Simulated assay, not measured.
Amino acid sequence: MTPDRERRLRALTPTVDAALRPGDGAPAGFASVRRSRLLPPGLDLDTAAERLLHWRLQRGVGRGADPSSERIEEGTVVDLRIGVGPLALIAPCRVVEVLDEPGRRGFVYVTLPGHPVAGVESFGLTAEGDRVRLTIAAVSRPGSLLTRVAGPLGRLGQALVATAYLHALDDPA
């Protein structure tokens, strides 16, 4: 990400209240998505967290990620690319929380103007015995004419991406 683009994204006001969290339920006018899965045996919390906190989910499902920092930290801004070529959408976000507690890791980002939806998405890892659970949750509403017109198809697309995220940490490559 260029320094100029980073400055412009940092100056933007989020499209929703940055204090909104998916676990709090979906406010009126918002849809929610929640997907969860136990990661493969042998994938420990520290390894999964390193992958998660270096944009592996977003890049692992074919989205481009152009972040202000390769390691996710509070305040990081990112342009996510949805699609390919000239038809790709740029979806800017800002990381508003990073979770680093015993047995739990993750982060939350909020959408910025220009993102096709307005909302918040969380990505969490939780140790469950000798396994790790990955949970993706989001609350959003259409943020552009395209997503308003897409209606249920847009929500289906978001749910499919959340489901695809569940396997993006598996591969060590």
Rank of each mutant, 00 (worst) to 15 (best):
L45S: 09
R71V: 14
G119H: 00
R35S: 12
I72A: 12
A118D: 08
T76V: 15
V84E: 14
V98S: 06
A49D: 08
R37N: 07
G85I: 04
E101P: 02
R37D: 05
V120D: 05
R71M: 10
R63V: 09
I72R: 08
Y109Q: 07
A138I: 11
S32P: 00
I90G: 03
L112I: 10
V120P: 00
V108Y: 14
G62Y: 08
V77R: 13
F30Y: 15
T47C: 05
D46E: 15
P41T: 14
P116R: 02
G75V: 12
L39P: 10
E101M: 04
A48H: 05
V78S: 14
T111E: 13
P41I: 13
F30M: 15
V110A: 15
R94S: 06
V96H: 06
L45P: 08
S36T: 15
R63T: 10
A48K: 01
Q58G: 04
E101A: 13
P113C: 11
F107Y: 15
L134K: 02
V139K: 02
I90D: 00
R59Q: 13
I82A: 02
G114H: 06
G29N: 07
L52N: 05
A137I: 08
L134H: 00
L112E: 05
T126H: 05
P102D: 09
I90Y: 00
L112W: 05
P92H: 01
P113Y: 08
L112K: 00
T76M: 14
G106K: 01
R56G: 07
Q58D: 10
A26G: 01
A65K: 08
S69N: 15
H115K: 00
S36Q: 14
V84D: 10
T135A: 03
G119N: 03
V95F: 10
R37P: 10
D44Y: 09
R94Q: 10
L52I: 03
I82E: 00
P116Q: 06
V78M: 13
S140T: 06
R37M: 11
E74L: 12
L112Q: 03
L57H: 10
V61H: 02
G29C: 04
G42F: 14
A26M: 07
V95Y: 11
A65L: 11
F107A: 06
A137G: 07
L52A: 09
R81I: 13
E121F: 04
F123K: 02
V84Y: 09
G64H: 09
